[in-house]
Amino acid sequence: MKHILIFLGLLCFSAQAQSPELTLNITNIETIKGSIEIGVFNTAHNYLKEGAAYKNYTIEVTKDTETIVIKDLPKGEYAISMYHDENSDDKCNKNFIGIPKEAYGFSNNVVPKFSAPSFEDCKFVFNESQAMAIQLRTF
């Protein structure tokens, strides 16, 4: 009986020690091709700087809504940016003044006005499993 109680105690401890899951539900995908490129940032210092994301994820587009479950993100504060790489060239294509030509989205569904949103605008606290809907937008 003592061994069973120890086993149950260890089982409960390991379940609590697991990282929470972040589920991203991405909507408003207009063309069914390419991939969604996701950057997760953990500081304002490097937010939206190319190659500076804390974590990167890719989803191949197969329908007009996609879902990704992120299981390797520790608890903390984050901001997410993403774009639909329709032509699979591994970059967010922009026009001559720097406005994205491919659909994009941010955590908190922030809609940029005259410039890219800040880390503070897009920041969210991730302490427990949660789902977040992000709608892709075009300019």
Rank of each mutant, 00 (worst) to 15 (best):
C12Y: 10
E128C: 05
F124L: 13
F13V: 14
E50V: 11
F106I: 09
T67M: 05
I134R: 00
N25E: 10
T62M: 08
C12W: 07
E30H: 12
E50M: 09
T43V: 06
D64A: 11
I4F: 13
T138Y: 03
K91F: 05
I68P: 11
T31A: 14
G39F: 01
L8E: 06
P112T: 05
L73I: 10
E66I: 02
H45C: 02
D121E: 15
I36H: 04
L73T: 06
A131P: 00
L11Y: 09
N87H: 09
L136G: 08
E77D: 15
E120C: 08
V61G: 10
Q18H: 05
N95R: 00
V61N: 04
K63A: 15
F41P: 07
I4Y: 10
E102Y: 04
A17H: 02
A116S: 13
P117D: 02
D90K: 15
Y54V: 08
K63M: 06
D121A: 15
L48E: 00
K113H: 10
K91P: 00
I32F: 07
L24P: 14
S14Q: 14
A103T: 09
N127E: 09
I6G: 02
E50S: 13
A116Q: 06
T138A: 10
C122M: 06
F124E: 13
S107I: 14
N109R: 01
F13M: 12
F126H: 05
D89S: 03
G105T: 08
T67Y: 01
L8G: 04
G34T: 08
N25H: 13
E128P: 11
N28Y: 01
E37S: 14
P100V: 05
K71C: 07
K33N: 14
D90E: 15
F126W: 08
G34K: 07
I6L: 12
I6R: 01
A131N: 10
N56K: 14
E60F: 09
I59T: 06
L5Q: 12
L73H: 01
K75C: 04
M132Y: 02
D85K: 01
G34N: 07
G39A: 15
H3W: 05
I26R: 06
I36R: 04
H84V: 10
M1Q: 11
S115L: 07
A116P: 01
L136D: 08
I29F: 11
N127S: 10
E102D: 09
L10E: 06
H45M: 09
T62D: 13
F114N: 13
I68T: 07
P117R: 01
N109Q: 02
V125Y: 00
P100D: 04
P100K: 02
T27K: 14
Y47T: 05
E77H: 11
P20F: 04
N46Y: 13
S35A: 14
S19N: 15
G105Q: 03
P20D: 03
I80P: 00
A44N: 11
D72A: 07
T58Q: 14
H84L: 07
M82I: 07
G9L: 13
A79M: 09
F96H: 02
L8F: 13
